[in-house]
């Protein structure tokens, strides 16, 4: 193929995929607000995302907070600005690292398992079987996952924010010799409602992205075990890229005024 043709082909394919994802998202979200609702299925997803992701997200958060304190201390000491450590930790965690890292971890954990579960149901015709048993698979399988992603990720990020800031505190106080009271004072002075809220909004969007990619790739997978494997990979990779992409877009919306 000639280069122009190739580029044109890739661009068209990309646009077509974006169109399909947007239609899928619209259909899925539509089913979130129209009965019947499957509360059992929703409950399972809420627990799966909100509760079972806690260890992964918590561990990520504590090490991130610790490393932030350490890095910003060694960096800022060159300008004798060590006092800014608390500030840097709080702002970076709440605005940026809390939601992004939680989003990426959940993409690996939840996005992959959604794609694998729904993909397996697709290739073994269980999705078709649902339709023949008077059950809309979009309602039973997709809608609860979208709702759970949208609502549970902000909760996870609140926890991640707290643990991350605490991690920074541990390193600052026990390793770098900060005065605990002063450090805490610095932390609370730096804490801004705007930062936290923007982080939580980001978290909601990232949660939706993870669920959407997991469901979409699972739902559209084909061709047996290999197809399910590809769906899983695609779900994780596409959510990771979209998370980073939307992170920039949302930051631009919130803070560039």
């Amino acid at each position: 193929m000639r280069p122009f043709q190739l580029v044109g082909h890739v661009v068209l394919e990309l646009l077509a995929t974006v169109g399909r994802v947007v239609l899928f998202a619209g259909a899925g979200l539509g089913h979130c607000v129209r009965p019947p609702f499957y509360f059992r299925s929703l409950g399972r997803q809420l627990i799966e995302i909100g509760y079972y992701s806690l260890p992964v997200v918590g561990l990520t958060a504590i090490f991130t907070g610790m490393v932030l304190a350490l890095q910003s201390y060694t960096g800022f000491s060159r300008f004798s600005a060590e006092g800014a450590v608390a500030n840097v930790v709080v702002v970076s965690i709440t605005r940026e690292l809390g939601p992004v890292l939680a989003g990426l971890m959940v993409a690996g954990r939840i996005g992959a398992s959604m794609a694998a579960e729904i993909g397996t149901m697709r290739v073994t015709e269980q999705i078709d079987a649902l339709t023949t048993l008077s059950t809309n698979p979009m309602k039973l399988m997709v809608a609860p996952r979208l709702v759970a992603g949208l609502t549970m990720l902000p909760l996870l990020v609140i926890v991640a924010d707290i643990i991350g800031v605490f991690g920074g505190y541990l390193v600052a106080v026990y390793k770098l010799g900060f005065n605990p009271a002063n450090y805490l004072q610095g932390t609370f002075d730096a804490l801004q409602a705007e930062d936290v809220v923007s982080g939580l909004v980001k978290a909601s969007v990232f949660g939706l992205i993870v669920s959407l990619m997991g469901c979409y790739h699972g739902y559209t997978s084909r061709g047996g075990a290999q197809g399910v494997g590809a769906a899983t990979t695609n779900a994780v990779v596409s959510s990771a890229i979209l998370i980073l992409c939307f992170d920039y877009i949302l930051t631009e919306l919130f803070f560039s005024r």
Partner: peptide, 19 residues
């Protein structure tokens, strides 16, 4: 479609049981 599907029962070739 839903109303019509309610009249149907289907045995899939591979079973398609919910595992």
């Amino acid at each position: 479609r839903d109303a019509i599907n309610r009249k149907f029962g289907m045995l899939f070739q591979g079973g398609a049981l919910f595992d």
